[in-house]
Amino acid sequence: MVSQKVTVKNEAGLHARPASVLVKTASRFKSEFYIRMYGYEVNGKSILGVMTLAAESGAEMELILEGPDEEAALEAIVKVFENKFKNEL
């Protein structure tokens, strides 16, 4: 298992479109992915779950990955946060 704390950096927060980008990235990996925030935990591959976090700009959360490709997945997901959820296109 690997984990890392990240901050939501884009102005608008983790709303629908960013959530979609996040889920799309996470779903490329086999590892299970959970997001922990305020003692609340959601499946990071569930778009509705991620949306219900309603994380605003500046919110801190912990990414937890477990599985065969956990390192690569964590790296990719952290990058999504750093790029402010810009679509990879």
Binding site: S20, K24, V42, N43, S46, N87
Partner: peptide, 16 residues
Amino acid sequence: AEIIDAQIQTLNDPEV
């Protein structure tokens, strides 16, 4: 297209 992507993800949401 982005909205529809989100709809497709919702349809296939593992928790749902």
